[in-house]
Computed example of a mutant assay.
Amino acid sequence: MSKQLLHLVMGGRVKDPQGVDFVDPYSVHVVGVYPSYDEAVEAWRGQAQRTVDDAEMKYVVVHLHRLLEPDLPSA
């Protein structure tokens, strides 16, 4: 059985489109947690496309498994 690698997709309005400093962290939209990177990217792409005309909206994929177990080698 392979190791479970969880990914979080979230987004919101950012102060600078080049960064991930959210204007209001309390209003960050949590899209969901996904068991594979491919599923997370699909969810991210859907949200990012919905907000493509708003340069201050940004969605990201967070590798939760790297936060939960930082000593694991990158896959």
Rank of each mutant, 00 (worst) to 15 (best):
M1C: 03
M1E: 02
M1W: 05
S2W: 00
K3Q: 11
K3R: 10
Q4S: 00
Q4H: 04
Q4P: 02
L5C: 01
L5E: 04
L6S: 03
L6A: 05
L6H: 07
L6K: 03
L6F: 08
H7L: 08
L8W: 05
M10A: 14
M10F: 06
G11W: 01
G11A: 12
G11Q: 02
G11K: 03
G12W: 07
R13K: 15
R13P: 08
R13I: 10
R13T: 12
R13H: 11
R13W: 01
V14L: 02
V14R: 08
K15D: 08
D16M: 06
P17G: 04
P17L: 03
Q18S: 13
Q18H: 11
Q18K: 09
V20E: 09
V20G: 10
V20M: 03
D21H: 14
F22A: 01
V23L: 04
V23A: 02
D24I: 04
D24R: 02
D24G: 00
Y26W: 12
Y26N: 13
S27N: 13
S27W: 04
S27M: 12
S27R: 13
V28Q: 02
H29E: 14
H29L: 13
V30L: 11
V30G: 00
V30D: 00
V31L: 03
V31S: 07
V31W: 06
G32Q: 07
G32L: 05
G32A: 08
V33S: 02
Y34H: 00
P35K: 02
P35A: 01
P35R: 03
S36N: 03
S36R: 07
S36Y: 01
Y37K: 09
Y37L: 12
D38G: 01
E39W: 00
A40P: 05
V41K: 05
A43L: 06
W44Q: 10
W44E: 06
R45F: 08
R45A: 11
G46C: 14
Q47V: 12
A48K: 14
Q49C: 14
Q49F: 14
R50S: 14
T51I: 13
T51W: 13
V52Y: 15
V52D: 15
V52N: 14
D53K: 15
D53A: 15
D53Y: 15
D54A: 14
A55C: 13
E56G: 13
E56Y: 12
E56R: 10
E56C: 13
E56L: 14
K58V: 05
K58S: 11
K58H: 11
K58W: 09
Y59D: 05
V60T: 13
V60K: 12
V61P: 04
V62H: 07
V62S: 05
H63S: 12
H65D: 04
R66N: 07
R66Q: 02
R66M: 03
R66Y: 01
L67A: 12
L67M: 12
L67Y: 11
L68G: 10
P70H: 03
D71S: 13
D71I: 09
D71N: 12
L72R: 13
L72Q: 12
L72F: 04
P73T: 12
P73N: 09
S74M: 14
S74A: 15
